[in-house]
């Protein structure tokens, strides 16, 4: 496949402990895919492998058609990431944080300011561009990170439990915004353990004990149950 995210037969172990076991899935462009899994299911390991913080000896990952193992630079250039951990420099302004990231992605300075303005206003953050990140609340910090992840025009967006620690309003706004991004053609993989962030029209992957338990359209999978009840019934873990 050419666009989107494609994972084939990915396994990984920490010593004797098998964290991922023959995981395969694909997310096409323009789709919002929720990766749901209880704690310890292997979500973090999968995210580390997708971002090449870890490399697996088996399996293959393609990001927008680029093989992450063979040409990591090209693949990573097409990937936008919002990590679970905050990764902003608190003492720098919003704009400085974005400029630092832009440099890491080799974006030239010419035209950079306009680009930063564009992603910030897309997330209603334009008027805060000169504020220090330390003075921002959690919701605005997350929005800054989302803006940053879009700065290099990625084709695949990976968000690792992006709403952890946010209040309800900020959560809803980020969830809605990222769904919009998928509607505009971006391929989105969103990991979470919160079922209310998943819409019926979303793709759903359930990761359990290192294996993909279920994959398909969320609304069809849950049937008459609420997603939370369905999830608990198959994994035995509350969602």
């Amino acid at each position: 496949m050419t666009g989107g995210l494609d994972v084939q037969d990915l396994s990984f172990s920490y010593g004797a402990k098998q964290a991922l076991n023959h995981v395969s899935f694909a997310v096409p462009p323009g789709r919002f895919c929720a990766l749901l899994g209880p704690n310890g299911a292997g979500k973090s390991t999968l995210v580390s492998l997708l971002t090449r913080l870890l490399v697996s000896p088996s399996g293959a990952i393609h990001i927008a058609g680029q093989d992450l193992g063979r040409s990591p630079g090209k693949a990573l250039a097409r990937l936008g990431v919002v990590f679970q951990q905050p990764t902003l420099d608190l003492d720098l302004s919003v704009r400085q944080n974005l400029a630092y990231f832009a440099a890491l992605h080799r974006i030239p300075r010419r035209g950079l300011n306009a680009r930063i303005d564009a992603v910030l206003s897309r997330l209603d953050m334009a008027e805060r561009s000169h504020e220090k990140v330390r003075s921002l609340n959690g919701g605005h910090r997350r929005r800054t990170e989302l803006a940053r992840a879009l700065l290099h025009d990625p084709q695949v967006l990976l968000l690792d439990e992006p709403t952890v620690g946010l209040d309800a309003a900020s959560r809803a706004s980020i969830v809605a915004h990222v769904h919009d991004l998928a509607d505009q053609g971006l391929c989105v993989l969103w990991t979470t353990h919160l079922t209310d962030e998943v819409r019926d029209s979303d793709d759903l992957l359930v990761l359990h004990r290192g294996e993909i338990l279920t994959a398909g359209r969320s609304g069809e999978i849950r049937g008459a149950l609420s997603l939370s009840d369905w999830f608990q019934s198959v994994t035995g873990a509350p969602a």
């Binding site: 971002t51 090449r52 913080l53 990591p72 630079g73 090209k74 693949a75 990573l76 250039a77 990937l79 990431v81 990590f83 951990q85 905050p86 990764t87 902003l88 420099d89 990231f101 890491l104 992605h105 080799r106």
Partner: peptide, 12 residues
Amino acid sequence: MGSMRLLLTSPL
């Protein structure tokens, strides 16, 4: 803190 992740996921 996570900023290492940011550095290491650069395409360079």
